[in-house]
Design a protein around this nucleic acid. Structure first.
Lengths: 232, 232
DNA sequence: GGGCTTTCTTGAACACGTTCAAATCCACCT
DNA sequence: AGGTGGATTTGAACGTGTTCAAGAAAGCCC
C-alpha cells in the first residue's frame, strides 16, 4: 500500500488536496460542522473549485467511507489469520471495526442519516452503493471462508450480505452508545455474535428446515441477483 | 372526526393554519421540495412567524407522522375487529399501513433519512421519539392481544417493540420499491408476516429455548426498561 | 508565436433553514 | 381612558450547500 507515484495531472493533485483537507476536517470537527467553505479554504482553493471536483458534500463523505473500510480491512487481517472458529472470527472483525471507527464517534452520527437515505450509496437497497457494499460483503465472505466448521453452502451464499447488514446495525447502535469507551456496544456485539453463531448452528436442524428455507427465500427476494437496477 | 369546538386563542388558530398549510404542501410536493417560505406564504403568515410556532421544519414533519399514524389506526381497526389469528391480523395491519402511506411515496423517502438520524424522533433508539414509537407499539400490542393462539407472556412483552421496528423496516423497503402499485412490498410483507408467525410458533419449542432466551435478553438490553435517557 | 479547445479556477449569486431584535397586537388592571 | 406586560408578528439578516457565467491556465496544432 505504498502510494509510490505522485498524481499525474495538476487537476488530480488539486482533487487530492481537497479530499485530504475534507477528511482532516471531518475527523477534527465532524461532518455537519465542516463547511464546504472550510474545506475549500483548507485546501487553498475557491469554493467553486471544490465543487468542480466533488459534486456535493456527500461525495466527500463517500471518500471517507472508503478510507474507513480500508482501515477496517487492515485491522481485521490479524484476526482472520489467527482465529479459526466462526464466532471468534466474526467477533474479532466486528471489534476491529469498532476500533477503527472509534475516533469518528461524533462524526458518524451523520453517516447513518445518509445510510438510510435512498439516494445514499450506503443504503443497503441502493444500487449506487454497490461498491461500498460489495467490499463489505467480501470481508464477511472471508470470515466465513476461513472458519472451521464449514457453513452449509446455501446459507454461506447469503450470509455475507446478512452480516454486512448486521454490521450496519451495530454501527447504528454504536452511534447512540453514550457509555464510556462504548462498552455497551462491545457487550452488544458479543451477545449478537454469540446469537448468530448459535442460529447458524441450529439452522441445519431438520425442525428448522422450513423456517430456514423461508428465510433464505426472503433474503434472495430482498437482494435479487446481487444487483438490480445497478445498470445505470 | 368532527372538529367541533373552534380553537380558542388566536395563536392556536394561527398554529393550526400553518400546520395544515404544511401538511398540504408536503402531500403535494414532498418534504424537501416544500419550503418554509412556501408554508408561511400558504398560511398567510410571515416566515418568522412560522418559526414562532414550529421551531424547525422537523417539527412540522413530526406532526405529519402523527397524522399518518392516526390514519393507520383507523384503517387497521376493521382488520382487528374481524381477524382472530396472528398472521391475519398482522398482515391486515401492515397492508393497512401500506395503504395509508401510499399517497406519500415520494415524500416518505425523507422520512427515513431522518428516521435513522440520531436526532430524529423516529429513530428507534432516540428518546424524543418515545411518543411516536409508543403509539406504534400500542397498535402492535393490540394485534397480539386479540389473536387467538395466545403468545407466551415473555415473548408478548417484547414483541410489540420488535414488530414496530419490523414495520419501520417494511417502510424502508417500501420507499425503495419501484414496482407498480408497490406490489413487491406487498409480497415482501406477506412473506415476512408468514415468517414471523412461523418463528413465534416455533419459539416455544424446547430445542430453541436457549436461542429464544438469548434473543429476549438481547432485546431487553437494546431497549432497557422501555426508556433510557428519556428524562430530558 | 498565434489561435483554438479543453481543463481548471474564480467570485458572485441563489434559495434554503434558521435566528433575532424590534414592532405590533391584545387582554387585563387601575 | 391609559398604561403595562405578555403574546404574536414581522422583515432583515446570517451561514449553509450549491450553481453558474465568465475568466485564467494549459495543452495542442499550425
Amino acid at each position: 500500500m505504498t502510494d509510490a507515484e505522485p498524481p499525474v495531472s495538476k487537476g488530480e493533485r488539486t482533487k487530492e488536496r481537497i479530499l485530504q483537507a475534507a477528511l482532516e476536517l471531518f475527523r477534527e470537527r465532524g461532518y455537519e460542522a465542516t463547511t464546504m467553505r472550510m474545506v475549500a479554504d483548507a485546501a487553498q482553493v475557491s469554493l467553486g473549485n471544490a465543487y468542480y471536483y466533488f459534486a456535493s458534500k456527500d461525495q466527500l463523505l463517500q471518500a471517507f467511507y472508503r478510507e474507513v473500510h480500508e482501515a477496517h480491512l487492515e485491522a481485521a487481517e490479524p484476526v482472520l489469520q489467527k482465529e479459526r472458529t466462526l464466532p471468534a472470527r466474526l467477533l474479532g472483525v466486528m471489534l476491529a471495526k469498532l476500533g477503527v471507527i472509534e475516533p469518528y464517534h461524533r462524526f458518524s452520527a451523520l453517516m447513518f442519516r445518509t445510510a438510510a437515505d435512498p439516494e445514499s450509496p450506503l443504503n443497503p437497497f441502493h444500487a449506487a452503493g454497490a461498491g461500498v457494499r460489495a467490499e463489505g460483503e467480501a470481508l464477511f465472505a472471508e470470515v466465513l471462508r476461513g472458519s472451521k466448521p464449514k457453513v452449509p453452502d446455501d446459507l454461506a451464499a447469503e450470509l455475507p450480505g446478512l452480516l454486512w447488514t448486521y454490521s450496519m446495525g451495530i454501527v447504528l447502535y454504536w452511534i447512540h452508545d453514550r457509555s464510556p469507551c462504548r462498552e455497551q456496544t462491545r457487550a452488544f456485539v458479543e451477545a449478537t455474535v454469540d446469537l448468530i453463531a448459535t442460529s447458524i448452528k441450529l439452522a441445519s436442524n431438520p425442525l428448522l428446515r422450513p423456517l430456514q428455507k423461508k428465510v433464505l427465500e426472503l433474503v434472495r427476494k430482498l437482494n435479487p441477483g446481487g444487483r438490480r437496477g445497478a445498470g445505470s
